[in-house]
Write a protein that binds this DNA or RNA. Structure first.
Lengths: 178, 178, 178, 178
DNA sequence: TTTT
DNA sequence: TTTT
């Protein structure tokens, strides 16, 4: 993918609910979640502390969707990097409506509360190259065993998800954003 | 302002229209604009190039609103840093609707096409301290003249803007996001 | 502060040691710490997992320096936003040398392991305005008490720090970066 | 590549010189350049405007190195995203020294001053998938022709670059950072 | 020197 | 509605 311009979002927050994993007819995973960030400030007049929680709608695709679905839970603190995308959809009365989401391209768990042994950072692509140029340096003879597979084994069969429209595109929004 | 979590957006794009500057009853400026970023990719099946433009709704407050209103124009390329905020509002039928915007905290013009002599980077706050600690070093005797005031002089009087509701909160969305 | 260009660093990592807090003759705090981030990849030839840890030198000034010194400890996981700055200094043989640091402007603790009750996000400036424009909305009558002061009370008197040169500028580097 | 932690740099600045392109024995390109960002502020005492230019050393690998070498020139304004990496090397007296660089993973030209017709944004990897999930939507029938190849054709033969050590690792620093 |  |  190429781009004209930069469209980048960086979030650290906590999940409001367990993530929802769905599968495309193709078998590709799509995971949706909501993430809370909050701002606090003092009211200018009263000096009273104020707080506002912002809820972000985040969507993951493919491998990252599976990882998010497996390792994230309600309350999890997570770093997410992605891009803004506003989708157009029709409500039940046929009116055009818009929902803005963050399409995640990178994710990193920030708490290891679960006992999954999982977590870690999961980039959006499986680069087994050496983008930092470290391989140019004298080889460090790594002798430790290959890491445990952190990618979910149980890739659900698409047919378990009956021929529903692609989640996040057709049926996702019943009425309001979340 | 303090925060729990990180809510950060970084955009580089072009303005779809001239910015709209409004003034609060307090006299504070609020500027709204839409910014285009685009992605291009090749269709997996056909190999045909695809393009999708993302339109971002950006809002500026106070000093930054005035600067944006003065120096940005339709087509301007700009760097914007800010935070996501989703506002709830009611459409004409009384239904709840939501609009997601980027509340800009920093802006930097990336083309100097206009003859304004303006541009430059405009942080969201007027820090006249020395956040980088440069002042600790031996003073460089700056002998060049004080920079031209880049802040618009003509702060419009609030009364010129009749008692309208706060823009971007009440009257901003007539119907659809943009 | 204004800028031509963007100079932004975003780090999430763990402290290698407790932070070092020093005080300027003016009484302003300066805190230095090192932060680890790491990359892992597989060797192209052997398929062996490789790991490389990057050590970042971070410096905080003023209020943020005090907060960092109070709440961060060896091993703490932290989000840091800042800017790159390369300082020139002379080693004992009089040779010019350079050290690149991140001057932190924002910090957020990501683990609450300590019992300090502290943490939270600490922006680099004490904005008690309303940069997100929330104050425009109907006032939420916050009735909870004012938050505990998270800023250290015990501002050390400068004279407790004998007339030493500014840390991080003169005496900081004895020989090598860290 | 996976990561524990986040190590991200975002720069917008101007090149101090034309980029230097070298080739690894493998034929892979490595491009080095220096990028200027600047801060301006007012001296607290004198009120005099101060300015400090920060010079960033940026390194590109592989495809991005070729693009940078072809399209960027002294004075070019560019957006760069990457990661910090501090390299250790020995000066002529055998002393350990360190240089911090930004390893670029994404680049976007911000001026189209050259007549190359090139530029555009060049991500660090050639994703021809559909990371934003747009392909799920009804196909927009793109009828415009395939874009001009923006990747340099003239991949220089490695043998033109005699068996020199990897640039940026051995021979890059003659003495001081830049 | 951290972390998993 | 922008831009290349």
């Amino acid at each position: 993918m190429m781009a004209r311009g930069i469209n980048k979002v960086i979030l650290i927050g906590n999940l409001g609910q367990d993530p929802e994993v769905k599968y495309m007819p193709s078998g590709n995973a799509v995971t949706n979640l909501t993430l809370a960030t909050s701002d606090t400030w003092k009211d200018k007049q009263t000096g009273q502390p104020q707080e506002r929680t912002e809820w972000h709608r985040v969507v993951f695709f493919n491998r990252l969707a599976e990882i998010a679905g497996e390792y994230l839970r309600k309350g999890s603190k997570v770093y997410i990097e992605g891009a803004l995308r506003t989708r157009k959809w029709q409500d039940q009365s046929g009116q055009d409506r818009y929902t803005t989401e963050i399409v995640a391209s990178e994710m990193q768990m920030l708490d290891s509360r679960g006992g999954e042994g999982g977590g870690g950072n999961q980039g959006g692509y499986a680069g087994n190259q050496d983008p930092m140029g470290y391989g140019q340096q004298p080889q460090q003879q790594a002798s430790r065993p290959a890491p445990q597979q952190s990618r979910p084994q149980n890739q659900p069969a698409p047919q378990q998800q009956p021929a529903q429209p692609a989640p996040g595109f057709d049926d996702f929004d019943d009425d309001i954003p979340f």
